[in-house]
Design a protein around this nucleic acid. Structure first.
Lengths: 345, 345
DNA sequence: CGGATAATTTACAACGATGTAAATTTGATT
DNA sequence: AATCAAATTTACATCGTTGTAAATTATCCG
C-alpha cells in the first residue's frame, strides 16, 4: 500500500527530496506544477511523493509566501437565514478562486467586529468581507489602511473602503408602492429598532416615507412601530401594542423577514386575515418567506451578485489594487408571494 | 499617536526587541505572560509593543509550535437551519476553549467529504468535527490519518472514531407514540429518500416501525412515502402523490423539518386541516418549526450538548488522548407545538 | 561576606516551505 | 567540435516565531 504513514512523524519536503535524490526546490516545483520540469523528473518526484504520502505543510508555505489564501467573512450571526445564505454564496464564490473562508460571528458586538479586522492584521487571513452591525465609520477609519476590506450592508463606511449594498431607499419605495398598488392607504413600518446604529433601518424608513409622499399619502408617525430589539418576539410585542392601542393599518412593511413572519403569526393569533385585512411585506427573501403562512412577499437582494462582487473586489484589493473605495449597488427585486400578491391587471 | 504604522512593513518581534533593547525571547515571554519576568522589564517591553503597534504573526507561531488552534467543522450545507445552528453552537463552544472554527461545506458530495479527512494539505487545522452525508463506514476505515476526528450524526462509522449522535430509533419511537397518544391509527413516514446512504433515515424508519408494532399497530409499507431527493419540493410531490392515489393517513412523521413544513404547506393547499385531520411531526426543531402554520411539533436534539461534547472530545484527542472511539448518545426531546399538540389529560 | 541556589535573560537553532541567483545540463548553430 | 543561449536543477538564505540550554543576575543563608 502506498501513502502509508508509520505514525512516526510527518513527511516533509526534504524527505521526499532525499527519497527521490533531488533538491527540495525541484520537489517544490513539481508540487506547484512549475512548467520547466522534465517529464522524467516529474514522474520520479511524483512517485516519491505518493510513496511517502507527502502533504505540503500549509503553515510553512504561508510563512514564506506571506499569503494565507483565506478570507474572513464577518457577520453578526451564522444562525440567521439571510446571513447563512450569504455565507453559502460567498464560500462558493471564494472556492472558485481558490480561497477559503473563515466565518467569524460578531454577535453584533462592536469589540468582536473590530477583532475581525485585527485578525487580518495578525496574518490569519488576506482580507475581510465585513457586514457590520454596530461599528461606526469612525471606528473603521482607524484601521490600518492597507488591510483589504469589502463592506457589505447599509452602514456608513469610510470612503476608502469598497462597499456593496442594495439601494435600500429605492427598494423600500418599491415595496411601499406595491402595497399602495394593492389599494392600501394606511401602511405601517415594522420596525424602528432601538439602538440600531447600522443604518439599514433608517434607509428603509426613508424609502418608506418617500414612497408614501410620492403617492400623495401622508406620513403618520404612529405607524412607524418602535421595536425593542432584533428578536422576533419584540416585533410581536410591537404589533400587538399597536393593535391594542387602536392604531389601524392595512399594509405592513417589515425591516426583515423575521419581523414579518413574527407579525404574520401575531396577526393570525389576533384573528386578522392576511393579506385581506393587512398585506405584509418582508425583507431578505429568506427561507422563512417560502414556508410561512401565507407565504411572504419579500424584498429580495441578489445574493449571488453580492457574493460574487464582494469576493472579486476583495481579491483585487489583495492583489494590490489601490485607490479609493468603490461603491457598488447590487441588484434586487420584490419577490411576490401571497402576503402581498400581484396587483390584478 | 501610538501604534501608528508608517506603511512600510509589518512590525516584527525583533523590531520590538531592538526598540526595547532586549532579546527577542524576552519579548516573546512578555507576549505570552510568562511569569518569570520582572515588572520593570514587562512594562518596558509592553511600552515598546504599543509604541510600535506590534501584532504577533500567527503563521510563524504556528509553524514552530505545530498548533493552529483551529478546528474544522465539515457539514453538508451551511445554508440549512439545522446545520447553521449546529455551526453556531460549535463556534461558541470552541471559542470558550480558545479555538476557532473553519467551516467546510461538503455539499453532500462524497469526494468533498473524503477530501476533508484526507487532508490534502496539512497543518490547516488541529482536528475535524465531521457530519457526513454520503461517505460510508467502509470509506472511512480506509482513511488512515493522524488528524483527530469526531463524527456527528447517524452514519455508521468505524469504531476507531469518536462519535456523537442522538438515539434516532428511540426518538422516532417517542414521536410515533406521541401521535398514537393523540388517537392516530394510520401514521405515515415522510420520507424514505432515494440514495440516502447516511443511515439517519433508516434508523428513524426503524423507530417508526418499532413504535407502531409496540402499540399493536400494523406496519403498512404504502405509508412509507418515497422521496426523490432532500429538497422540500420533492417532499411535496411525495405527499401529493400519496393523497392522489387514495392512501389515507391521520398522522405524519417527517424525517426533518424541511419536509415537514413542505408537507404542511401542501396539506393546506389541498384543504386538509392540521392537526385535526393529519397531525404532523418534524425533526431537528429548527427555526422553521417556530414560524410555520401551524407551528410544528418537532424532535429536538440538544444542540448545545452535542456541540459541547464534540468540541470537548475533539480537544481531548488533539491533546493526545488515544484509545478506541468513544460513542456518546446526546439528549433530545420532543418539542410539542400546534401540529401535534399535547395529549389532553 | 562567600558560595550556593534560584530567578531572569539571552543566544541560537529549529519549524518546513519558497524565492533568488548561481550552477549545470541540454540543444542549436556554425 | 566549439561556442553560446536556453532550459533545468540546485544551494542557500529567508519568512517570524518559540524551545532549549547556557549565561547572567539576584537572593538567601550560615
Amino acid at each position: 500500500m502506498s501513502g502509508t504513514n508509520n505514525g512516526s512523524r510527518r513527511v516533509r519536503l526534504v524527505d521526499v527530496a532525499r527519497h527521490a535524490g533531488v533538491s527540495t526546490k525541484t520537489v517544490s516545483n513539481v508540487v506547484h506544477n512549475y512548467q520547466h520540469v522534465t517529464p522524467d523528473m516529474r514522474s520520479r518526484v511524483q512517485k516519491a511523493i505518493t510513496d511517502l504520502g507527502y502533504k505540503p505543510n500549509l503553515t510553512a508555505r504561508r510563512l514564506v509566501t506571506g499569503k494565507t489564501s483565506m478570507i474572513a467573512l464577518a457577520i453578526p450571526e451564522t444562525n440567521h437565514p439571510y446571513f447563512s445564505s450569504l455565507a453559502d454564496a460567498i464560500v462558493k464564490a471564494a472556492e472558485d478562486r481558490d480561497y477559503r473562508v473563515l466565518i467569524e460571528q460578531t454577535d453584533g458586538d462592536s469589540e468582536k467586529e473590530l477583532d475581525v479586522l485585527r485578525d487580518r492584521e495578525a496574518g490569519l487571513v488576506d482580507g475581510v468581507i465585513f457586514q457590520p452591525a454596530k461599528v461606526t465609520s469612525l471606528d473603521l477609519a482607524q484601521i490600518q489602511e492597507d488591510t483589504p476590506v469589502v463592506m457589505l450592508g447599509e452602514a456608513a463606511s469610510p470612503i476608502s473602503f469598497d462597499h456593496i449594498m442594495i439601494d435600500n431607499t429605492a427598494a423600500s419605495e418599491v415595496a411601499v408602492k406595491h402595497l399602495i398598488g394593492l389599494g392600501r392607504k394606511r401602511i405601517a413600518f415594522l420596525g424602528d429598532v432601538r439602538g440600531d446604529s447600522a443604518g439599514a433601518t433608517k434607509k428603509r424608513l426613508t424609502g418608506y416615507q418617500k414612497g408614501l409622499e410620492d403617492s400623495g399619502l401622508s406620513v403618520d408617525t404612529s405607524l412607524v412601530l418602535q421595536v425593542e430589539s432584533f428578536s422576533p418576539e419584540s416585533a410581536k410585542v410591537a404589533v400587538q401594542e399597536a393593535i391594542r392601542s387602536g392604531i389601524e393599518f392595512d399594509g405592513l412593511l417589515c425591516r426583515d423577514d423575521r419581523f414579518a413572519v413574527a407579525a404574520l403569526q401575531l396577526l393570525r393569533d389576533e384573528g386578522i386575515s392576511t393579506p385581506e385585512e393587512i398585506a405584509v411585506i418582508g425583507w431578505d427573501d429568506t427561507v422563512l418567506a417560502r414556508y410561512s403562512y401565507p407565504t411572504l412577499t419579500s424584498v429580495s437582494p441578489n445574493i449571488q451578485a453580492i457574493a460574487n462582487d464582494a469576493v472579486t473586489m476583495l481579491i483585487e484589493r489583495i492583489e494590490g489594487l489601490s485607490g479609493t473605495g468603490r461603491h457598488v449597488l447590487a441588484p434586487y427585486n420584490l419577490h411576490i408571494r401571497e402576503s402581498a400578491p400581484a396587483v390584478k391587471a
